[in-house]
């Protein structure tokens, strides 16, 4: 097993039977330097894996909070090179999984992009607009460089398709909890168990639940419903947008989430 995939597996295993906490942060938001500090605050507050977003001009899977953060990060001068430096700074302390839209991965060519990402010490890659049918070139490159290409499944994904995606998952299976874009939502925890059971039956890698999870109570419910990992994004990005001290604000929320999962 290659190094990135191994690090992710170890991060999940070391938390069992509890669920791994996987905060998302937007690289370059509000600035590159501050996003690095936010990432470090996440690690200190108990993050097991950090999901690092690359700001993109047209983020189709994202709701208003993350879309706005991406727009502001780009306006503030963030670029891929800068976000990869954030990954490089965090990677010695925590497995980093980059979340990046397909056009930025394909622009230099998947092989070049993945090689560059691997050199930062990151462990994996999530491409939210690269479904199973389009993933081969990126999966091949990730496998060659020891990075986990983490696929997504949704509540709309039918069983046979879920099995195909699950069989080819690396690192973990990113399970979208709701039909919709990223963003905070009122508790729909009653649905978590069904979504998670379907996903777990379809794969041998850990299953992480994301989209619409923002509070410690929801994180706890996701873990109780069987999630191996819990991803929290928009709530943390909103805190980074609203607070005069983004790293402290995000760190405090991550600590609360960690306490909820302990």
């Amino acid at each position: 097993m290659s190094e990135g995939i191994q690090r992710i597996a170890t991060a999940f295993a070391s938390r069992r039977p509890a669920a791994a906490l996987m905060p998302y942060l937007m690289g370059g938001f509000p600035t590159l330097e501050e996003s690095r500090r936010i990432g470090e605050a996440c690690v200190e507050a108990g993050a097991d894996i950090v999901e690092l977003g690359v700001p993109y001009s047209d983020p189709l899977a994202d709701g208003p909070v993350i879309h706005e953060a991406a727009t502001r990060a780009l306006a503030a001068g963030a670029n891929l090179a800068g976000v990869l430096e954030v990954a490089r700074a965090l990677a010695p302390r925590v497995p980093v999984v980059l979340m990046c839209y397909a056009n930025m991965v394909l622009a230099p060519g998947a092989e070049k992009f993945v090689e560059r990402l691997a050199r930062t010490g990151a462990s994996g890659l999530i491409v939210p607009d690269l479904p199973y049918e389009e993933a081969d070139p990126v999966l091949g490159a990730c496998d060659a460089h020891g990075l986990a290409l983490v696929p997504l499944v949704a509540p709309t994904t039918p069983p046979q398709r879920l099995a195909r995606i699950g069989a080819r998952a690396r690192g973990f299976l990113y399970t979208v909890s709701v039909v919709g874009t990223t963003g905070e939502r009122a508790a729909r925890a009653g649905r978590f168990a069904g979504v998670l059971a379907r996903a777990k039956a379809a794969t041998e890698v850990p299953v992480a639940l994301g989209f619409g999870i923002s509070t410690p109570a929801q994180a706890r419910q996701a873990a109780d419903a069987g999630a191996d990992g819990v991803i929290v994004g928009s709530r943390l990005v909103r805190a980074a947008a609203e607070s005069p001290d983004p790293a402290a604000a995000v760190g405090a929320l991550v600590a609360d989430l960690a306490a909820g999962l302990a």
């Binding site: 189709l60 479904p131 049918e133 398709r161």
Partner: peptide, 10 residues
């Protein structure tokens, strides 16, 4: 091609 979030594929 079909470069969209998984939710839309079905």
């Amino acid at each position: 091609g079909q470069y969209v979030p998984e939710t839309l594929m079905p």
